[in-house]
Amino acid sequence: MDPIHKKIPVLIHNGKPVCESLVIVLYIDEAWNDKSPLLPSNPYQRAQARMITGFSSIKEVWTTKGEELKAAKKEFLETYNILEGELGDKPYFGGERLGYVGLTLIPFYTWFYFIKTIGCFKIEAQCPKIVAWAKRCMQKETIAKILPDQKKVYELLGQFRKRAWFGVD
C-alpha cells in the first residue's frame, strides 16, 4: 500500500495510505488530536520537537570499530547530552506527559545495552537524565509491552554486526 517505497509500516485511513513511522504519528496526532495532542500547540515548540526527533547517532556506534567507533561514541554522547539539555528537569520531553518526542526516541532505549557493550561506555554515567526518562517511559504498560528486551536486541544486532556487509567483527 506504500505507493512510493513499497515498505511498511503503512496506516490505511479512509482507504488512503499514510506511510513512514514518523509521518504516521504526526498524521494520527492531526487526525485525532481532540483529546491529548502529541505535539505542542506553539509552532516554535512543534518545530523544536520535530527537530529533536532527528537526533540519534546510534547506527554509527553499532556499524563501526576502532577509530571510527571512538568518533561515533563521541558523536552519540554529544547528541544525547543535547537531548539531556532539552529534557532538563521535566519528567518527559513534552513536560508532564509522554508526547511526540518521547514516542519517537523511546525505541532507541532498547539499543542502549548493545551500545554500552560494543561502545564500552556506560550510558547511565554519561546521560543519567535520558536513562531515568527512558525508565519512566518503560513503566507505562503501553510502552513496555511493545518494545523488545534489550538483551534480545543485543543478540540480533550482534548477528547483523557479524555479517560481512557491515565489515565489523
Rank of each mutant, 00 (worst) to 15 (best):
L105F: 09
E75P: 13
E155Q: 11
W111P: 00
L103M: 08
D2F: 07
W111H: 01
E78R: 12
E141M: 03
G66C: 05
P37F: 11
K145G: 12
I52R: 06
V101A: 00
E67F: 06
L147K: 03
Y100Q: 01
C19E: 05
K65I: 05
A72F: 05
F121C: 09
I146N: 05
S56E: 02
L105T: 02
G167M: 15
L105H: 07
W165Q: 14
M138V: 09
K7Y: 11
G88Q: 14
A71W: 01
P91M: 04
E20L: 08
V153Q: 11
R46S: 04
P3I: 15
Q48P: 00
Q159K: 13
I8D: 10
L103Y: 11
G158F: 10
P91V: 04
A144S: 15
I123E: 02
P3D: 09
S41A: 14
I130P: 00
T64W: 01
C127D: 08
N14G: 07
I58S: 02
F108K: 01
S56Y: 02
I146E: 14
T64M: 05
L156F: 15
A31C: 06
K70M: 13
N33G: 14
W32Y: 15
F76Q: 06
K140P: 01
T104M: 12
V131G: 04
D29M: 09
L11G: 04
I28Y: 10
F112K: 09
I130K: 08
I106E: 00
Y109L: 01
W32A: 03
I8E: 10
T117I: 03
K73H: 03
V101H: 07
W133M: 00
P43T: 08
